[in-house]
Design a binder for these strands. Structure first.
Lengths: 284, 284
DNA sequence: ATATGGTATAGGTTTAGCCTATAATAAAGG
DNA sequence: CCTTTATTATAGGCTAAACCTATACCATAT
């Protein structure tokens, strides 16, 4: 019986659902399921009755709830005895424009929720900042890098493109097709190397700087393009297909200079979100 | 910052020593060391100043202590809301005479300390019991077996035996020597098979039933014998040497019938002692 | 100087937690 | 009545945390 189990229990109690609790706790649903079963075993009581529309607490569950809350609160209080997490904390964060806005803003929102005294200023990647969202290829030896999620590169095309009939594409299928190139691109070299090795050439119709712009051109029917899948979120006017004979991906995370000393609870909060980001089933 | 860290912290605070705390918590000293360092990192404060005769708490440590205690107490209280650990609990435990008394009694002592309402009656292995100390070879399909420690088989000999000059023995060195045989023996078959395979024979001078008796005969100079190393504890009149070309061992633990439903906290308490039993450096 | 008792670090192994995928179940809708 | 959908449970595999052993290091006492 540890604090983690209680945090999960509280989430389940309040959400009346294991799946919803899983989302709130940034983990997958089976983790909640097994942990809860374990807690019930430990206490020798059933805490919820399960049915197919969620769960409802038993008397034992209802009895446990306030104690669990007090427990978790006191644990937090104990931390703030030493690290004053309510103290004003001003952090500058650099955003690289080509990263998934949905995931980045989820991270920022959670940080604001979890760290009371926090305010941050968002700056451009070109400027100096305490923290910066970036991906592995831009990390220098002088940085600490906390990885958060992975982006797979996929082929984007207009919705009625003939390639959409395939669930996934072989690299050979895109030989000589009209292509929107984008620079800078994390996997520029791997991509070019791959094309060359397979004897494939693209018919480059445009060269743009941002993923957004590339997608606009794809949607306009100028050609296909290679983009990280997360950058599509929400867009209905293009279709993406994975590449099945090679795995191209980038690792996205947060980096900061080794010299800068940030409060441990800030870093911990960031890292606590990592599971969700890797978790496809519980996607936001 | 979890409950485990706090339990370790409390032990260190009260013992004024990492090593002593390790013994109390049934873990090795480095586990305490790293966990404590981690806790200090989390809280952003140093909790103890280390010096070569132990540790003394800092102000932060002293400040944390009462809160940590309350935390752990409340956690225990929460468990006893459901499983009334003070309720009288009468358990019969079967002891097999050939197991290490020192370790067995350590387990029994800890159980009495940790589980307030517990009383037990010790019975012989031949009788029915709720729990029984035994080893892997005696476990049936109808049992649940919780393993606690391992016993290596070693050669026991009188103190002035010429073999004592070797730090460890090859099986060939004991060919044709006077031998005290013991039955039943967990590794009877493995042992006989081994002797036969290597073309080795023993000069069996006696066949006895208990390890105690076998050791008495060894001490009296009648021959050497093969015994689990734990069964020697404290005896000065015989010397033991490991066998270096084969690993003979038995796994000792607690078993109970699958049908019997014992309180989970009893089992948990038993299993919490497992680390110590495997832990040579922190041996009792 | 040398031993002794105590803490820290390094390296390797085991275990616990997590994820994906999928099964099982029950309610809701056509 | 069958299909779809939403929910929890189980199985299998992977990763990271905790633990152990061995050893280094450091201060004190002999």
């Amino acid at each position: 019986m540890d604090i983690r189990s209680l945090r999960y229990f509280i989430a389940v109690f309040e959400e009346r659902s294991l799946s919803a609790a899983a989302k709130r706790c940034f983990v997958a649903q089976p983790s909640i399921s097994t942990t809860l079963a374990q807690l019930e075993g430990d206490l020798g009581t059933q805490l919820f009755v399960r049915h197919s529309k969620g769960v409802i607490p038993t008397d034992s569950g209802a009895q446990l709830y306030p104690h669990a809350c007090r427990m978790v609160n006191e644990m937090n209080a104990m931390r703030s005895m030493f690290v004053d997490s309510h103290a004003p904390l001003e952090v500058s964060i650099a955003l690289t424009p080509f990263l998934s806005g949905a995931l980045v803003s989820q991270v920022l929102k959670t940080l604001l929720d979890e760290i009371p005294g926090l305010t941050f200023s968002l700056v451009d990647a070109s400027e100096e900042a305490d923290l910066r969202f970036t991906c592995d290829s831009f990390v220098t030896d002088n940085d600490v890098f906390y990885q958060l999620w992975e982006d797979n590169y996929v082929i984007a095309m207009i919705n009625d493109h003939w390639l959409t009939e395939f669930a996934s594409l072989s690299i050979k299928q895109i030989d000589k097709l009209a292509f929107i190139s984008r620079r800078p691109c994390d996997i520029q070299e791997s991509w070019n190397y791959l094309l060359q090795k397979q004897g494939i050439s693209m018919d480059i119709r445009a060269q743009v700087k941002t993923e957004e712009y590339a997608l606009d051109l794809v949607a306009a029917g100028l050609g296909i393009s290679l983009i990280p899948e997360h950058s599509l979120r929400g867009r209905q006017d293009v279709t993406i297909r994975p590449i099945n004979d090679v795995a191209l991906k980038r690792v996205v995370g947060i980096a900061h200079n080794k010299g800068i000393n940030l409060p441990a609870h800030l870093i911990n909060t960031i890292l606590s979100m990592k599971p969700l980001m890797n978790n496809k089933t519980a996607a936001i």
